[in-house]
Amino acid sequence: MTVELWVAILAGTLALAAPLVFAGIGEGFVERAGRINLGIEGMMIMGALAGVWGASLGGPLVGLLAGIAVGLVMAVAMNLVVYRLHANEIVVGLGVTMLGLGLSTYLFQLWVPSGQTNVTVPTVPRTGLGPLADIPVIGPVLFGQSPLVYLAALLLLVAWAVMRFTRFGLAVQAVGTDPASAALRGVRVERTGASALLIGGALAGLGGAVITIGTIGSFTPDITAGRGYIALAIVIMGRSRPVGIALGALLFAFLQSFALLSQSTALTLPSEVYQSIPYLVTLVVLVITSRRQLRRLYRSTKVSST
């Protein structure tokens, strides 16, 4: 394996991590508020379709906004159903995913009937950060990325700051930990939870749009390939914390990038092994973190009861 290949793999890692980071940060808010959004996969794929559609009409920025808008609309609908009509959020989440996967395929087939060439849009161009991009190895990996990657990094910081320093962040955590007490202290539980879900939906839509107009440039049905579930797993693994989410996203993206690029090299494993590794490792890490969290839970219970 040459240095160039590793540079390509690592650069690809950051590019592939961006959509997971966006969706993961959004889901982080949702889970901190004590909720779960299983519709994230459906929101991402609708965002992916809206992204290409918007970009084909008015450039990449319109595409990103279209992705955000679609995710937001779906989250508003989901919030309405789950918190006004009191439907079970897991079932509704699965329904939203089914709906998103179906609707994106339906609209795509209407937009590009089979037999016609797929619509492609120019991806967001990479922008080197001036002289930094010329540093060997580190330059192309860290500083020669698309602006979306920098945006993802910025958003991580913002999410951390919001959680840590703002009234809203505190309210979200209070609602997630103990809704009854939070309500007694004057936090509007429903509204805080709804805001978290809307942030989650908007960022899931954005994450989907980043998949299509960030790296691929076109939409195909099922293009997200479970990335929404991966985002969910990452958030649980990272305990809803920005750093944890970032690490999880980087791990999955690295394995994915490795699988994409190292197939052509001397390592002769079946291609299915490469494709499965990211999911397998995610599962393994999920097991490890669940185990650790369980131990912590036991320890705290024992302390409190004696």
Partner: peptide, 21 residues
Amino acid sequence: PASIAEVIKGVLLIGVACIAA
């Protein structure tokens, strides 16, 4: 497109969740 069935299934599942509550 025949994928309309998937959309309807999704709407139904969400609806069932509402009714079940």
